[in-house]
């Protein structure tokens, strides 16, 4: 139920509560509200749930999972 899918914003239209993005999920384009992500821009990835973007994906944080174990090993030495 709480499934949210990451997709890339390819177009933005409207303002405030009507701010809507065209979001590319793989090869499928769908409309989603961007009202709750006021700083989202074309090219950003957002998590979309029930037609509404609820979070912007942070690219830098997204990569951390892959270096995490090495990082931990280094810290615990």
């Amino acid at each position: 139920m709480c499934l949210a899918i990451p997709g890339e914003i390819v177009e933005i239209a409207g303002e405030d509560l009507s701010r809507t993005g065209t979001i590319l999920f793989g090869t499928v384009k769908k409309q989603a509200s961007l009202a709750f992500i006021p700083d989202a821009a074309v090219g950003n990835y957002v998590l979309v749930h029930a037609g509404v973007a609820i979070s912007k994906v942070d690219e830098k944080e997204a990569r951390r999972i892959f270096g995490y174990l090495e990082e931990i090993d280094e810290i615990s030495g």
Partner: peptide, 13 residues
């Protein structure tokens, strides 16, 4: 309008 906090923003909107 069922759901947890995840779904609430869409329902509120």
């Amino acid at each position: 309008a069922v759901g947890f906090e995840t779904t609430a923003p869409a329902n509120a909107m």
